Amino acid sequence: MRVFADYCQDLVAQAREQLRSDSDAVPAAPLARLERYLLSIAAAFAAESPHRGCFLTRGTADLAGQDEEVARTARRAFDDLASAFAAVIREAQDAGEVADHSGYGHTAVLAEAVGRGAGKAAAQVDLVAVDTITDEQWSLLDTADAVIFGTPTYMGGASAGFHAFAEASSGRYLRGTWADKIAAGFTNSASKSGDKLNTLNFLAAFAAQHHMIWVGLGLAPGWNALQASESDLNRLGFWVGAGAQTPQDGGVETVHEADIATAEHLGARVAAQAAALAAGRAALATA
């Protein structure tokens, strides 16, 4: 057992060393560091004679079901490796090397705008990328007063990454963890319509299954009269949530200013509703 634990510690330490950004021995770019590490692992296993493979993987497969200590050690090692990978992937996302859950980065721009709006309304804001969500971030959602869901619209619906997150939340549905929290949603597509309403309706239904309280956009439609402007808030005319349109071949700088402002409005509106609900519950508790 000691040999297995030492192997796991060394494996994680080597991964962290090769992936960390302040090491002079590795390329500075996050994606280059990740690529180099993965290629080094593949080369090391390929050079073995005879081929033994990864001790962590073999130990988990052979012994984890029989020895709880092996299972805990393996689980900790896998979690530590996942955290190291997630950290360097997030670096790559921040550096613009890898798009986050939003696919092209457009929905991420809207998420940041939602966060700014909520922050201006004095809310504490945490942005969570659902396709790389950690246990700590699940806990943030569990304790939040409100959750604003966001996803790009692909092929007339929410992205595969968001669907995976939704399905992973089923245990919380069964336990009622998110019941009576405020919820809202936003989405982006390349076309003016792009069937975004399907995505927003899915987000609302998802929230309803969790027994959450849905908050709509709360804006009249813009850009629907001769004197109206494409710079109007809610220029695409959605009520269920915030809908945005960004050219599919455009960078993050092409996200429309009116859509960004609409997303900020949604964040501020949800923060205000969550604060009012919390204040009301506190007043009832002391009545």
Rank of each mutant, 00 (worst) to 15 (best):
P152A: 01
A190G: 10
V147R: 05
P30T: 06
S102T: 12
T254A: 06
A111G: 14
S23A: 11
I148K: 02
G103M: 09
G176N: 03
A242V: 01
R2Y: 08
R72I: 09
A166Q: 15
A144W: 12
L56W: 04
L197H: 13
A190H: 00
V70Q: 06
A274Q: 04
V270R: 00
P27M: 07
D80C: 04
G105S: 02
A204Q: 15
D6Y: 07
T143W: 11
A158V: 12
G185P: 08
A87E: 12
A29N: 06
S23M: 00
E35V: 11
R175S: 14
A184N: 05
G119Q: 05
I133D: 14
A184Q: 05
L127G: 03
T286S: 13
S102D: 12
V3Y: 10
Q245K: 09
D145C: 01
A207Q: 01
A220W: 05
A207N: 01
L200V: 01
K192R: 12
E257L: 10
F186Y: 12
L217P: 03
Y154D: 06
D142I: 10
D67L: 08
R90D: 14
D62C: 08
A282V: 00
Q137G: 08
A87T: 12
V88S: 04
G185S: 09
E136R: 10
R52F: 05
A121M: 08
A205P: 00
A122K: 15
D232M: 09
T177R: 10
K192F: 15
G115F: 03
G243P: 03
F4H: 02
F162L: 08
L81I: 15
A225R: 13
S191V: 04
G222Y: 00
L31H: 14
L140W: 12
D180F: 09
R281F: 00
P152I: 00
W178Y: 10
N224C: 10
S83P: 01
